[in-house]
Amino acid sequence: MADAEKIIEIEVLRYRPEQDKEPVLQTYKVPFTDDMSVLQGLQYIKDYLDGTVSFRWSCRMAICGSCGMMIEGKPKLSCKTFLREYYPQGLRVEALAHLPIERDLVVDAADFVAKLERIKPYIIPKEARTLEQGEYLQTPQQRDMYEQFSSCINCMLCYAACPQYGLNPKFTGPGVLALLHRYNADSRDGGQDERMKLGYADEGFWGCTAVGYCSEVCPKGVDPANAINQNKMNSAINYFTRFVTPGRADK
């Protein structure tokens, strides 16, 4: 650290279940350079100041989705956010909002993972094909129908942003609903009916009030609000046509 003369104060929300009744803030003075991310600041704390600080991270390049946290009250990936933006006033980092804290900046993702599994986040082939028949072909136009939604990295920033998820954790939430749409909108997929049953519920698309903050905070340019709105239309059409469309009444 050649030009490490600049020092920034990082306030970290600590929660150690064995000693803290409730989360408390702890401040660290961290020397930093202009190219250092908030994640690197936390790594400096862990390596040189306080080895007990816990946080998740892996790739350092905004693709693994592990290092999401509240930075100055906004859900961000700490690897994609730079310390210099908060100099000289300093910054506060906290565990992702709306999710139970396991320890310090580590949240419990069990609810998110359970919801993700429920929507079957994989292609359910429309028709079985033998090896001889070759691969499932798709035109660029068909790919465009779902491509942006496939960029989701499951970082849960949209869950920390969503006021409806904060009010009612039963709401399926933006990320999972965007992924539901990603598979439903894939021309190779035939699992729409199973997935839409989850979407038609109050806890599905209808739990959204179109606030749109999820799309704003997404670090990968996914637009969950758009996915949900498209499917409110699909759900409404299904709601009214299910009695006149053969075979739809039970769906």
């Binding site: 049953k197 989850l198 038609y200 519920a201 109050d202 806890e203 599905g204 209808w206 409110k232 759900s235 409404a236 709601y239 009214f240």
Partner: peptide, 15 residues
Amino acid sequence: MKRSNEPIFWSLFGA
């Protein structure tokens, strides 16, 4: 999960 009746209100809202 139970189907929501929200489409009625949402459709009127949308219209």
